[in-house]
Each structure stands twice: as structure tokens, then as C-alpha cells.
Simulated assay, not measured.
Amino acid sequence: MITDRPLILVVNDDGITAPGIKVLIEEMQHLGEVVVVAPDGPQSGMGHAITIGKPLRLDKVELYPDVEMYKCSGTPVDCVKLAVNRVFKGRKPDLCVSGINHGLNNSINVLYSGTMSAAVEGAIEGIPSIGFSLDDFSYDANFNHCRPYVRSIAAQVLQNGLPKHSLLNVNFPNDSFDLQGIKICRQAGGRWVEEFDERLDPHGRDYFWLTGKFQLEDRGEDTDVHALQHGYVSVVPTQFDMTAHHVIPELNSWSFDIPND
């Protein structure tokens, strides 16, 4: 793995055979030497989960020409950890890209996303990182309109780097839009209103199927949701420091009376 070209780690949460990762691999091959470490099956909604208490498998596979590829039995974050510690053997990649996810990771979805958590893990490791997602959950989603933007955004990160402890969350409208360009946005305020569909299994035991609807609580025109609704590619600078810094002064004004008993 000795090359003068930028070394690019590609990961996802839809699994190593997903169409979205194939598009990402092809676009990254224009920019550098690509190494893929991805889950052996779908891992959507895993967030920043890691595997403990059971072994991880890492197997080399050959799916695409001239690409070093490994499938991992663990989560997207496991994939990044194994890539950094075992595959690259101490050499840090120049870029980590995750996706292209089948489905949006805008607004609050960033917290649940395996795609974005893999990119976050890359940033934790000090690697400039990007998560890419498309507003289309179907297996045969059309990613062609994303290609030039994927390459352009990745090239800019390779050229300019990113501030420490930050990464990019990039979301694309589906192919029903004529893309208007890129908008740098903030994350929209929103949440999922969950419902649990209760059913019976063949043995008469209750089980639950999670459903729900996304509830937008933010009508700002500078958000990722607004940009996507108007045909723009949304780019949200993201960080993994979850400290509510603006709350610290208020907490410092409290009097904490410690009971003596």
C-alpha cells in the first residue's frame, strides 16, 4: 500500500455490495488510491455502535478491479477502527468517505446514522471525513446526478483539509430534482415521532415493529431540510463535541447544596 496518490478509505452502512458504495468507489478512484472496508451486510441505524463481547471477522474480497476491499462482520464504526489499526497498519488515510447512503441523513437523522457515524469515527482518528447520503431508499436508486458533486466536494477536502474534530455531512435530493448547486447549511431541528406496531408471532407472542414519521420543527431557510426541498445539495459542517457550551454559564450560576446525611 505504497502510493504517491492520496489514500482514501471508503466505508458505508448499507453493506459492501450496495450500489451506493460502488458509485463512491468509482468517483474516489479519480482522486486517489482506494481501500474499502465495509460491513458484510446492512447496518443502517446502528449509530456509533461498536462490537464488544464477540469476535470480528475481516475478510479480503474482490468485487471491483484495482480496489483493495475487505468485508467486516461488525458495524460501520468497527470498519473504520479495523481499517486504521489493521489494514493501514499505522499509515493514516488522507480521506475517509462514507456512503453513498440509500436514504437521507439530514436533521436529527445524523444521530442514528451508521453512515455518518463511520465518518465521525474517521474524524475522531484525525482523518478528514465526509458522509454522503441520497434521498432515495430503493436498492436501484439513481446516483448519477450525485457523481460530479461527490468528486468535487471530496477534492476540496483533500486540497484544503478540515478543521480538527469536524467533518462534513452531505445530502443529495433524489433524481427528480434538477440540482441547483451546493448550499452550506446548518442542521434542521426535527425529531421522529415513533409508533410501535404491535403484532403476534406464530407462537402467539407479542412483538413490535418500529414505525414513525419525521416531524420538522424548524422552518429556517438556512437548514439542510430547506436546501434539499429546493433542489440543492446540502453540506453541513458537523462535530462530535456534544458539549452544550452555551449552557455552562447558567450551570455555573446554580448553587449545588450537598446533603450531609
Results as ranks from 00 to 15, higher is better:
64 Y>R: 05
144 N>R: 12
234 S>A: 15
103 G>W: 02
142 N>K: 10
203 H>T: 10
215 Q>L: 13
166 S>V: 07
129 S>L: 08
62 E>C: 13
66 D>Q: 12
73 S>K: 09
30 H>A: 15
13 D>A: 11
87 V>T: 08
89 K>Q: 15
129 S>A: 15
43 Q>R: 14
65 P>E: 02
259 P>K: 14
67 V>M: 05
195 E>C: 07
140 D>H: 13
174 N>L: 03
216 L>F: 02
126 G>K: 10
116 M>W: 10
86 R>D: 10
138 S>P: 05
250 E>A: 12
7 L>W: 08
240 F>Y: 15
7 L>T: 14
138 S>W: 06
254 W>S: 03
88 F>H: 01
221 E>S: 09
147 R>D: 00
158 L>G: 06
180 Q>Y: 03
90 G>Q: 04
17 T>I: 11
176 S>A: 10
257 D>H: 14
171 N>E: 07
47 G>A: 07
26 E>K: 12
79 C>P: 03
136 D>C: 11
67 V>F: 05
16 I>E: 01
147 R>Y: 01
167 L>F: 15
169 N>I: 01
90 G>A: 07
190 G>M: 05
254 W>P: 01
32 G>P: 06
201 D>H: 08
104 L>C: 05
32 G>Y: 03
83 A>Q: 02
249 P>I: 01
80 V>E: 04
161 G>R: 07
34 V>L: 03
6 P>K: 13
80 V>C: 10
103 G>D: 02
42 P>N: 11
180 Q>C: 05
145 H>I: 00
160 N>V: 10
92 K>W: 04
62 E>M: 12
80 V>S: 10
228 L>I: 07
74 G>T: 11
240 F>N: 05
238 T>R: 14
197 D>T: 06
15 G>V: 00
104 L>T: 12
